[in-house]
C-alpha cells in the first residue's frame, strides 16, 4: 500500500465498513503494529501526528479546559505556554464559552470539537481524523469543514476517513478508495470530477430524424430524444456534430458537461 500526501492536502479515505480504513489509521498512528512490512515515510522522518479517533471517549469528570491543559502538557507545552495554547485551540474550535463544562455534560457535537482540539494541540504536521463530521448537526458540519479548510490553508496535511461523500466533496483535495484492506483507487478530486462525464448537447426538439447520421460518426456518440451525448473519445467531433444539428434546422439550447458523480465512482470501485 502506498499513499502520497503533501502539504496543504486533504486526503479522504473512503470505503465500506470493514475495508480497513480505521486499521490503516491505527497503523499510521502506531497504535497497531503492522502484521508484516513496515511504514516508511517518504520524507524520511515521521511527521508530528495529531489524531482524532472515531469513537470519542474522554475522562468524563474532567472539565474541557482541564482535559485540554493535560493534553497540552503531553504535547510538550511548558507550564507558561499552556494557557495561551489552550485558549487559542478553544477559540479555534468554538469552545471558549464551554471551557468550564464537565465533559460528561457536553453534547456529541461538542465532543467532536474537543476531539479535534486535542488533536490540534502540539501543532501537528499531519492530522489524522477518523469520521470528523460524525454526530454534528448541519451547522456543526459546516463549521467543522471551515476549520479543516482553514487548517489546510495554514499548510496542514490532513488524512481523514469518512463515510460521508459530501464531506469529501466539500473538503478533500485527494481521495483514496479502500476495499478489503487495499487501496483500489487514488486520484485528486478535481480529476475525479473531470474524468468521466459525457458532454451533452441539448437541442430544441426530437433528433430522431438525424439520429443514424449522428451515431454513424463515432460509436461514442449517442442520441437520446432531444440530446446528443458525446463520450470522451468522440469529443473531438463536437464541431461536426454541431454543424450537422444546425444544418438540420435544430437550435442548440445549451452544451453541458455534467460532473461525474463521486458516488458512481465509489460504487464502481467497490463493486470491482
Amino acid at each position: 500500500m502506498s499513499l502520497t500526501l503533501g502539504r496543504n492536502q486533504i486526503l479522504g479515505i473512503l470505503g465500506p465498513n470493514g475495508a480497513g480504513k480505521t486499521t490503516l489509521l491505527r497503523v499510521l498512528t502506531g497504535i497497531l503494529p503492522p502484521n508484516s512490512g513496515e511504514i516508511v515515510p517518504l520524507a524520511g522522518q515521521w511527521p508530528k501526528i495529531g489524531f482524532k479517533p472515531e469513537r470519542l471517549h474522554f475522562p468524563e469528570r474532567m472539565k474541557v479546559r482541564q482535559y485540554l491543559t493535560m493534553m497540552a502538557s503531553m504535547s510538550g507545552y511548558s507550564r507558561r505556554e499552556t494557557p495561551a495554547a489552550v485558549d487559542q485551540i478553544l477559540q479555534l474550535v468554538g469552545m471558549t464559552s464551554a471551557q468550564n463544562h464537565k465533559i460528561s455534560k457536553c453534547s456529541k457535537g461538542m465532543r467532536q470539537r474537543i476531539g479535534l482540539a486535542q488533536a490540534l494541540l502540539g501543532d501537528p504536521d499531519l492530522l489524522i481524523l477518523d469520521e470528523p463530521g460524525d454526530g454534528l448537526d448541519p451547522i456543526g458540519q459546516q463549521e467543522m469543514r471551515a476549520i479543516l479548510q482553514m487548517l489546510r490553508e495554514q499548510g496542514k496535511t490532513i488524512l481523514m476517513c469518512t463515510h460521508r461523500l459530501n464531506d469529501v466533496k466539500a473538503l478533500c483535495t485527494d481521495i483514496a478508495i479502500m476495499s478489503r484492506g487495499e487501496i483500489v483507487y487514488t486520484s485528486s478530486l478535481s480529476k475525479v470530477t473531470e474524468s468521466s462525464g459525457n458532454t451533452q448537447i441539448i437541442c430544441d426538439g426530437n433528433l430522431d430524424t438525424i439520429r443514424s447520421l449522428l451515431e454513424s460518426l463515432n460509436p461514442g456518440i449517442k442520441v437520446i430524444e432531444n440530446r446528443v451525448e458525446l463520450a470522451q473519445e468522440a469529443l473531438s467531433l463536437r464541431r461536426d456534430v454541431l454543424r450537422l444539428l444546425l444544418s438540420a434546422g435544430h437550435d442548440v439550447l445549451r452544451i453541458e458537461r455534467p460532473e461525474a458523480s463521486l458516488n458512481d465512482i465509489y460504487a464502481k470501485m467497490i463493486r470491482q
Partner: peptide, 11 residues
Amino acid sequence: NESKSYPLFIR
C-alpha cells in the same frame, strides 16, 4: 486500558 488513552498514546 480504555480507549480514552488513545490520544495519550499518540503523544
